[in-house]
């Protein structure tokens, strides 16, 4: 009896298992499942366990609702001022309405959706680039740069296209990934850059030379000024000395003869101080002593 119950329970469990495999399906978080009944779309369900009729009655397709990133290839467009500009962009897009999305692309094919999105992106980029000047993309003046505006315009254009297409897709963000110039243009840019560099290096050298020359001449001028000042100062000092000496001079007025005599004696001493030869005769004291006493008169 007990054993029968066990067997019954076991059997029931087995049947339940097989039945759940046939009749139940799970949908993960961030997914949505689309159910078709005899290949006709009937409902979509969110995360959790769900009931279905087994194949071939109902079929379940799971669709990822997360944001996916699409990057496109370089496309070459003309700017408003007729420059060729290459751009690539990336788009964060997601499926927001599986019911609308599913029938638009064969069995909810993501690559097919990406192809469509890429086409929309290309045409949007082309028309937005054509509305702007090259200086809106690159500009040394931050006010002239319209990068954010360009991205916003592209995003809005793509968004509105998707709305009209009514395919259950939305984009969350759009950004320009790369900007490029056609290959031949890069060569021209290189030539321009080289000439700019040459100008810059020449300018730097000349500027250095002229600044150095300025520094040198300023130094020379300053030195000359200093010297002139010093000479003026020296003259002033000497003047002071002469004035001080002049104050003493009246002393000599007491007896000019003596002063004169002393001065002459001093100068005599000064003159004959060193390596001099003096030729004397009897007239000079003290040799006047010889006068008359020496007889070197002629013999006859």
């Amino acid at each position: 009896m007990k054993r029968n119950l066990m067997i019954l329970l076991g059997g029931a469990l087995l049947v339940l298992l097989v039945a759940s495999m046939l009749f139940v399906f799970q949908v993960r978080q961030s997914e949505v499942a689309v159910v078709t009944t005899f290949n006709r779309l009937t409902r979509s369900v969110g995360p959790g366990p769900h009931f279905k009729w087994p194949w071939p009655v109902e079929k379940v397709y799971k669709i990822d609702e997360r944001i996916q990133i699409l990057q496109d290839q370089f496309t070459e467009d003309l700017t408003g001022d007729n420059f060729n500009l290459l751009t690539t962009a990336y788009v964060g897009w997601s499926i927001t309405n599986a019911i609308e999305f599913f029938p638009k692309f064969r069995e909810g094919s993501i690559p097919a959706a990406q192809r469509m999105l890429e086409g929309i992106l290309r045409s949007s980029k082309s028309s937005v680039v054509g509305r702007h000047l090259l200086s809106d993309f690159v500009n040394p003046n931050p006010q002239g740069l319209k990068f954010d505006a360009i991205e916003n315009e592209m995003e809005q254009l793509v968004q509105s296209q998707l709305m009209t297409n009514n395919c259950g897709i939305q984009i969350s963000f759009l950004g320009i990934k790369r900007l490029g110039l056609p290959e031949s243009v890069t060569e021209a840019v290189f030539r321009r850059m080289t000439s700019e560099r040459n100008l810059l290096s020449k300018g730097l050298e000349d500027q250095g030379e002229s600044e150095a020359a300025k520094i040198r001449s300023a130094a020379n001028r300053q030195a000359a000024e200093m010297l002139a000042d010093a000479q003026a100062e020296a003259t002033r000092i000497r003047g002071e000395g002469e004035a001080a000496a002049a104050k003493i001079l009246p002393t000599f007025q007491q007896n000019p003869q003596l002063a004169n005599f002393l001065l002459r004696i001093d100068s005599l001493e000064q003159i004959l101080k060193d390596r001099s030869t003096l030729i004397l005769d009897e007239g000079t004291p003290p040799f006047d002593l010889f006068r008359g006493s020496l007889t070197n008169s002629p013999a006859h």
Partner: peptide
């Protein structure tokens, strides 16, 4: 102090 002294009578 003189180096040479020449006397000339």
């Amino acid at each position: 102090n003189l180096q040479d002294k020449i006397f000339l009578p």
